[in-house]
Simulated assay, not measured.
Amino acid sequence: SGALTRVKTRFYHSGVLSHCVRVLSLSPSRLRGIWASAATLAHLTSSCCVGAEPGSRSEAFHRLFLPSVVDVLLSLAGQLMSRSEAPPLLRTVMDAVGWLLSAHPHLTAQVLSSAHYEQIQMSDDVTRSETHHTTSCLPEDFLSQLNDESALLLLNDAVAQLALSSDAAVGGASIRLMSDSQRSFDVSAGLDSLLEKDWRGRGFEQEVDQLIAMPRPFRLSRRRRRSHS
């Protein structure tokens, strides 16, 4: 609503959101005992960044402030990995990241190339499934809003998930993302055998068949395809 937009905009211009980022940037020792509150603050900060109207400060908002929000959210997610209460809190934080991405697709490359994101991808299946929820629940037209570099990062991340995870939710989301994509992407030569060996018979046969049957030229980047046209 208009009133909510005005509140979010006021939070940004008044420095409230910047203060939230500073709080989320506190060292782990200062966040000890208040992890749930930090996760809630991450959710609220992300929510306020979606729908705010920065006006004359639009460039600073998109190029400086939003990337700083992504940094602190991913850092917090990395810290939560070692906590016993991690799964639900990690889901809250990664949902906040996903909410940001859904409204600001230009942040995708930053998320997927983050050392914190990579660290979480190398963790156990439970933690990884919470993280992959970030990209698996994005809008259907999300990929079409990305530039080639970001789209390729996201699609290749999905391929990596198939190799790293045995979780059906993670694998299913990755397979559906690739099969629904109208963007071409480079894949490892072993994708077909990986699909046949590890993901056949897991409940998404149609998508697996579609990926395996995908013509090889389609898997080249759009830039390379144009160069041959």
Rank of each mutant, 00 (worst) to 15 (best):
P215V: 05
L112W: 10
R91A: 04
L17M: 12
P105W: 02
S114K: 09
E130R: 11
L154F: 03
H228T: 15
R222Y: 01
H19I: 03
L101G: 14
R30T: 09
A158P: 00
H116A: 15
A60F: 12
S227Y: 05
G78H: 06
S102L: 07
R226D: 07
V159C: 15
P54W: 02
A151F: 04
A3N: 09
V21Y: 02
V126Y: 03
D95G: 15
R225L: 03
S129G: 12
Q161G: 07
E207D: 04
E85C: 12
D148T: 13
F204L: 11
L162F: 06
V7C: 11
K8C: 00
V70Q: 13
I120Y: 07
F218E: 07
D148N: 11
M122Y: 13
V126Q: 04
S82C: 12
S84T: 08
S102C: 03
L220K: 12
P139N: 06
G15R: 00
R10Y: 08
A115R: 10
L17K: 04
L164Q: 10
A60G: 14
R222C: 04
D157M: 02
D141Y: 07
S14V: 06
G2C: 10
D71L: 12
A169V: 15
D141H: 09
V7P: 08
L4M: 15
D141T: 12
L24Y: 02
L195R: 05
R202K: 12
A52G: 09
L191H: 04
H43E: 15
S229R: 13
P67M: 13
L100C: 11
A109I: 09
L177T: 11
S113H: 04
A163Y: 14
V187Q: 11
L41H: 00
P215N: 00
A160T: 12
V16D: 10
A168M: 09
G201V: 08
